[in-house]
Design a protein around this nucleic acid. Sequence first.
DNA 1: CAGATAACATGACAAATATCACATTAATCA
DNA 2: TGATTAATGTGATATTTGTCATGTTATCTG
Lengths: 237, 237
Amino acid sequence: MKTIEKSTPCELCMSRKFSLFSNLTEPHLCHLSDHKNFITHKKGQILFYEGTKPLGVFCINDGVVKVFKTASNGKEQIIRLAKKGDFLGYASLLGEESYSNSATIVEDAKICFVPRESFLKVLAEDTEFHRRVTKALCHDLGIMEDKLTDATQKSIRERLAFTLLKLSETYGIDGKEGEKIDIVLTREEIAGLVGTATETVIRLLSEFKKDELIDFEGKKILVLDKRGLARLSDFYG
Amino acid sequence: MKTIEKSTPCELCMSRKFSLFSNLTEPHLCHLSDHKNFITHKKGQILFYEGTKPLGVFCINDGVVKVFKTASNGKEQIIRLAKKGDFLGYASLLGEESYSNSATIVEDAKICFVPRESFLKVLAEDTEFHRRVTKALCHDLGIMEDKLTDATQKSIRERLAFTLLKLSETYGIDGKEGEKIDIVLTREEIAGLVGTATETVIRLLSEFKKDELIDFEGKKILVLDKRGLARLSDFYG
DNA sequence: CAGATAACATGACAAATATCACATTAATCA
DNA sequence: TGATTAATGTGATATTTGTCATGTTATCTG
């Protein structure tokens, strides 16, 4: 299923510009280029499973990947959606633990796999890079704290509104009428993102539509009233 | 209020053995000793506020500190309880961001404050230390993913049972009848830990007591039936 | 010690949300 | 294309949980 093809060398990779690899030295970039593995993945394919050992890190060149945990009730809690320029699996690798989550392709993706040794070599030799990785980890930690607090202290309606805002921020493209969230997510996936039941998402989305906060265009969501969603997503507003 | 007194030098500090500082070189330990600031804090005092800039890291010598976020509804979501050997505030420092959370003393504490420059100096000069810090951050990230998943997918009853188990794991001391959670938390704080309302905690705790899973001894909780709590905390069991 | 305040407790109630069952529509694929 | 499966939608219902009100008990402080 997975297609291995010739890829842009890291030195010329455009998505690198926005990633942790942005400021590497020429030799390090060449090293990565020589050792990386470029694979095209189709929607639904699995990148890695929770509980398995990380053998390297994934670097998304294009596409969207969902990182999720499977709860004991069988539902998926989506930790984050990763897009172009994002890294995957480095926390588990650096934590010297098994993957704490699973990852599957949500939108067809081109992904480079950098084997463990190459990644660790660059990390060890480029202190500045190590510092950037550390910084990214710290930032992610802060985001997780926010998510936890929202999960326990906000209602589903608020969280869904907030999720839609965040999605439009990241995947939004302007159209004649509102911003289109240019990514196809099932209601079940949105539920996994918010942390609720699929039916609840369906009901709330139609409510939002009725209130003219959003609209549907095929499988995609159109955000009509950001301010309205923002008001809904906040406790005071 | 805060008492500055003479303290053990880092070289001789016992709580260091269990901390990230455990394997530092002699010169680095001396450097830290020379620049650190030892302060005794009383219950209720504030270590730092969310939104302020970190000027260094805190290293707990003794006592318990709660790290929490204040949600928009005014309630506190406790991110973690930090104890002897734990570090505080390094994620915000290394993330070069303001504190993402606040910290206050839960049990009288002795805490060393290591100023930013000293910490960063050691971090820059001791690659192995930097690696350990990174590893700790990655581990914390995994824990936060678990907490988020639990928060969205488990009931309050399950989460409370789980919280009690975790507390007894960390702060438990064996007694004639069950394990005593040797730390005083108000119902409100337990609610903040679980992510629920205080009244709900009160009700569930009496339910647990009625079911002979726990008992109260003064302000402290006695865990009578770990297996029972474990069964309650899990979806399948 | 008394008064004030914080913590704990309980009842009544409303609201949000999960669950189950089933209908409809869309997508996939042999 | 027709059949199968996945996704979406809707209704009914039960339950959990939050909120508010109020009372009691413990703790603190002058």
